[in-house]
């Protein structure tokens, strides 16, 4: 039996069978759906394929969003990376540019994988594809790490929420960042405990983040929040891999996210009734949109 509902149970399973998180999650899905492991790997491979294409497209094309607030910034940042002009260095900047790329493709009605949502779809591909490339990891390893991400996402979905309308942006970009951080740790050979430490840090750092989309669109500030989600995943994975432990265990961090989300006023949960959406400029942009 590979069913789990909490980080604690997930870690127990990795210990019991002496396998990484990704293996537990593949077995969980196999048990639940009856699909063979090869079928599941294949399904995830096609998700990875969509992720890679969305990164490529966003980095190369000058995409324009439907709402017209964003677009082309991933390409501009990528040009700076090529010319060695970024402050945060090649690795972080590439992860950020790739996350922005997917986010822009999403806003331009392109094809993406909701991971876990469309609004946060840049974080996981941005962080994972960049780091896999840097360290020469194979697609097989990358696909496995996406199962690790999903395992973390399942726990958050069960004990809190992945929806901005229910929990604010912390539930979308915060969760995506936690999912990416755990996957990065496993990809780099860290232990399951280290993976969940990384996820804990990722959520802690974005705890309380509100969802306040300007004019109600998945554009501003979603794109730059995808950037911070990816960079945050890299930082948290490094902290965990160097042995830093989260004194608040992962399950408690998730429950904190749940209670913070519930305490958050509705105006700050995707309704575009607060935050950046309700600034003087935000209101003006919304009025222009409705014309």
């Amino acid at each position: 039996m590979y069913q789990f509902s909490s980080g604690f149970e997930l870690l127990e399973l990795t210990k019991k069978y002496n396998i990484p998180i990704s293996e537990v999650v593949i077995n969980y899905e196999h048990e639940m759906t009856g699909d063979s492991k090869d079928t599941l790997i294949e399904k995830m491979a096609s998700n990875l394929d969509v992720m890679k294409k969305s990164v490529e497209r966003g980095l190369k094309e000058d995409v324009k969003s439907v709402g017209g607030f964003i677009g082309g910034d991933a390409k501009r940042l990528y040009d700076k990376i090529i010319n060695n002009f970024t402050i945060s260095g090649e690795t972080v900047s590439k992860a950020v540019a790739s996350a922005v790329a997917v986010s822009e493709v999403n806003a331009a009605m392109g094809k993406i994988v909701a991971a876990p949502t469309a609004g946060s779809s840049g974080v996981i591909p941005g962080a994972l594809i960049t780091i896999a490339r840097k360290f020469g990891k194979s697609d097989d390893e990358l696909i496995k790490s996406l199962f690790t991400s999903s395992g973390v996402g399942i726990i958050i979905a069960k004990n809190a929420t992945l929806s901005g309308a229910e929990g604010g942006c912390q539930a979308e970009v915060g969760s995506a960042s936690a999912m990416a951080a755990a996957a990065l740790v496993e990809l780099m050979g860290g232990s399951p405990e280290e993976a969940l430490n990384a996820s804990s840090f990722a959520i802690m750092n974005l705890l309380g983040l509100v969802c306040d989309p300007v004019a109600g669109l998945v554009e501003v500030p979603c794109v730059t929040r995808n950037a911070i989600g990816a960079a945050n995943a890299l930082i948290c994975a490094d902290l965990a891999l160097s042995g830093m432990r989260s004194i608040i265990p992962f399950d408690d961090v998730v429950s904190a996210m749940d209670s913070v989300g519930k305490a958050m006023p509705c105006a700050l949960k995707e309704t575009a009734e607060g935050g950046l959406a309700k600034t003087a400029t935000g209101i003006k942009l919304k009025m222009n949109m409705r014309e």
Binding site: N106, I112, A118, A157
Partner: peptide, 22 residues
């Protein structure tokens, strides 16, 4: 706690045309 059983592909997916699932 949410007692729903989540599939991996509910979380990592769906593949869709953006920008908004809803």
């Amino acid at each position: 706690m949410d007692l729903r059983e989540y599939s991996v592909f509910d979380i990592m997916g769906p593949v869709m045309i953006g920008p908004s699932s809803s």
